[in-house]
Amino acid sequence: MILVSACLLNHPVRYKGDGNPCPLLMQYADSPKLLAFCPECAGGLPTPRPPAEIRGGTGAEIWSGQATLINNQGVDVTAEFKSGAEQCLELCQKHHITTAILKQRSPSCGSKEIYDGTFSGTRTPGMGTTAALLAAHGITIYGEEDLTEELLKKLLEE
Rank of each mutant, 00 (worst) to 15 (best):
Y28A: 00
R14Y: 06
L91F: 05
L102P: 11
Y15F: 14
P48I: 13
D30M: 00
A36C: 08
T148P: 09
I54Y: 10
A60E: 14
Y115T: 07
T99D: 13
S64K: 07
P125R: 11
G121S: 04
I97F: 12
T148F: 13
I2N: 04
G57C: 08
E145W: 03
M127T: 14
P125C: 06
A52T: 09
L9V: 06
P46Y: 11
K112A: 11
A132G: 11
W63T: 09
V4N: 06
D18C: 05
A132T: 14
C22A: 00
G128R: 01
A79W: 06
R14P: 01
A67F: 05
A100W: 14
L35P: 00
C7W: 05
T58S: 15
G19H: 12
D146G: 07
E150H: 14
K16Y: 08
T68C: 10
F81L: 12
P46E: 09
L155K: 07
T68E: 09
C109P: 03
S111W: 01
T78R: 12
I62H: 00
V4L: 07
D146H: 09
I101Q: 08
V75N: 09
Y28F: 14
I114Y: 03
V4H: 04
Q27I: 00
S108V: 08
L25F: 09
T68N: 02
K94E: 13
D146E: 12
T124P: 00
S108A: 13
V13P: 02
S31K: 11
T129G: 02
E157M: 10
Q87M: 15
H137M: 09
G59Q: 01
G43V: 08
A135M: 03
R105N: 12
T68K: 14
G138F: 12
I70A: 01
A60H: 10
A36F: 10
T98W: 10
S111V: 03
K33V: 03
V77C: 13
H95W: 10
G59P: 05
T68Y: 02
R123F: 01
K112Q: 14
C22S: 12
G126L: 01
L8T: 04
L9S: 00
H95I: 06
M127L: 12
E113T: 13
T99N: 13
E40L: 14
P48C: 11
G121F: 08
E80R: 14
T129V: 15
